[in-house]
């Protein structure tokens, strides 16, 4: 009988184990391949791409495509490179993540520790908003942003991302706080702490893990968004939209190496966050499967 320890592993023979490693290895290659292709081809001269093998390492190494993608490539009609759009994305992501996370934390706190009649319905309505196809709000959102004078501006995008991010952040914090003992809140109440004091002194100090999750989730989601950026970006388009414009531009020769460099630039911040704090991210995704 196989000794079952921490996983559901079963006893297997040599042949089976070899097979397992081969399959796992092949899939590892499958996931790595596109990144590898983008990587090597972003440091090749264009001629080597069109004339040579996509898999081959560069014969001449060059950082020129990266420089071009960053500061000189033609985006739309201006030869600005991706730099200004990168900045737009940063300006959009930081406040949107901060605001939606703070609101989510407060909402989760109220929905678990200050329950009231109908709180489940309120939460259900907030939760469903995570899953709507955003096409259903595009038209009225465009009108409202126009009316508010926020169309095509970074604050407009911040607002949109906060509105449609609250559902997720609330979900995370609510699930996290639900397993936080209510007796602690009651003890603090008897000790004389008020609503905000309890939040600040008792809840927040233990909210580190879920805050990491919420921030990473919101950061990747908002950074990677394309639909809202393309619809409401106007002159303040984020990185994803600019990358798409760069890649899809029909004028001139297709500078594949520049496109690849641009794609990696667009992916870098989220990849970085993922590498630094990926373990928490996975845990957060688990919490995302709506468990009370």
């Amino acid at each position: 009988m196989a000794a079952v320890t921490q996983d559901t592993a079963v006893s297997t023979g040599r042949v089976t184990r070899t097979f397992l490693y081969v399959v796992l290895g092949v899939f590892a290659l499958f996931y790595l391949l596109p990144l590898y292709v983008m990587g090597v081809n972003s440091v090749k001269p264009l001629a080597e791409i069109t004339g040579g093998n996509m898999m081959a390492l560069p014969r001449v190494w060059t950082l020129e495509p990266w420089r071009a993608a960053w500061s000189t490539a033609q985006i739309g009609i201006e030869p600005t490179g991706l730099r200004p759009y990168f900045l737009n994305s940063i300006l959009m992501v930081v406040p949107a993540v901060a605001i939606s996370t703070v609101l989510g934390a407060l909402n989760g706190y109220v929905l678990t520790k200050w329950r009231f009649r109908g709180d489940t319905i309120v939460f259900g309505l907030m939760l469903f908003s995570c899953f709507i196809p955003f096409q259903i709000v595009l038209i009225p959102m465009a009108l409202v942003l126009g009316k508010l004078g926020l169309a095509g501006s970074v604050p407009g995008l911040v607002m949109v991302h906060v509105v449609y991010g609250i559902g997720f952040t609330t979900l995370y914090y609510r699930n996290y706080y639900a397993s936080f003992p209510t007796e602690l809140v009651r003890a603090a109440m008897m000790d004389g702490a008020g609503f905000f004091q309890i939040f600040w002194r008792i809840m927040l100090p233990v909210s580190g893990p879920i805050t990491v999750v919420s921030v990473i989730w919101q950061f990747t989601n908002i950074w990677n968004d394309f639909l809202f950026g393309a619809s409401f970006g106007g002159t303040s388009q984020p990185m994803t939209v600019a990358l798409n414009n760069l890649v899809q531009s029909s004028t001139g020769v297709k500078e594949y190496n520049v496109h690849f460099a641009g794609a990696i630039l667009a992916a870098l911040p989220t990849l970085f966050v993922y590498i630094v704090a990926g373990r928490y991210f996975v845990r957060g995704l688990m919490a995302g499967s709506v468990k009370g």
Partner: peptide
């Protein structure tokens, strides 16, 4: 309000604040 009744309570789970030291727990009130 509970804090204005001049009562104190010991809970089944003890409800000690996990982020505070014993001393801070005891003097929080």
């Amino acid at each position: 309000h509970p804090s204005k009744r001049n009562i104190a309570m010991v809970f089944q789970s003890y409800a000690l604040y996990p982020n505070m030291t014993v001393g801070q727990n005891m003097t929080f009130g």
